[in-house]
């Protein structure tokens, strides 16, 4: 019951805090690709994998008072900071989520910048394609981000290291 909500709350709890909606989207997508059992469905949008379900579930958690969302002005746009509230922690203590290794993975992702997470999630979205095609996809679909080949290589290395953290290898 409300298990999918609890999983999301657990993800934010073990991350400490998550700053930025884009970062939150990408972290959950990457975790899902690492076989953590998040149920939110992702589709490819202009800015990479995006889940409307995840957006709505975060809104629900904020409405419930389980998540705290702080809106901060940053340059020309607003940025959102998410933490779990005390009632949220209490709810989670009654609805325990067992996801071993999730904390290590999310905390690691949380040290990376959103631009890099966007690249990693895009590479993972096309993980059924050979690397040369993925590189091509990144250059054409994410042309506005001006990624360079070294960054893509770095993303591949990162995926290997985070898979190890998730004990997938």
């Amino acid at each position: 019951m409300l298990n999918d909500h609890a999983k999301l709350m657990n993800a934010i709890l073990v991350s400490g805090e998550i700053v930025g909606r884009k970062r939150l989207q990408k972290m959950i997508f990457i975790a899902k690709k690492l076989s953590f059992s998040f149920q939110e469905k992702f589709q490819f949008h202009f800015y990479g994998p995006y889940s409307e379900e995840l957006t709505l579930r975060v809104e629900e958690l904020c409405n419930m008072g389980f998540l705290d969302e702080i809106r901060e002005k940053k340059g020309g746009y607003y940025q959102y900071r998410y933490t779990l509230t005390e009632p949220g922690k209490e709810f989670l203590s009654l609805n325990k989520i067992e996801m071993p290794f999730l904390q290590d993975c999310l905390q690691d992702m949380n040290t990376k910048n959103a631009r890099f997470l966007e690249l990693v999630s895009t590479v993972l979205y096309f993980d059924n394609l050979p690397k040369s095609e993925v590189v091509n996809k990144v250059f054409t679909l994410k042309s506005s981000q001006h990624y360079i080949e070294e960054e893509i290589n770095e993303a591949y290395l990162y995926i290997e290291s985070i898979k190890e953290k998730a004990k997938l290898q």
Binding site: H45, Y47, Y50
Partner: peptide, 13 residues
């Protein structure tokens, strides 16, 4: 089903 969203922080177009 989804609602119209103005696309803050590059979520969707």
């Amino acid at each position: 089903y989804d609602f119209y969203r103005p696309g803050e922080e590059e979520e969707r177009l």
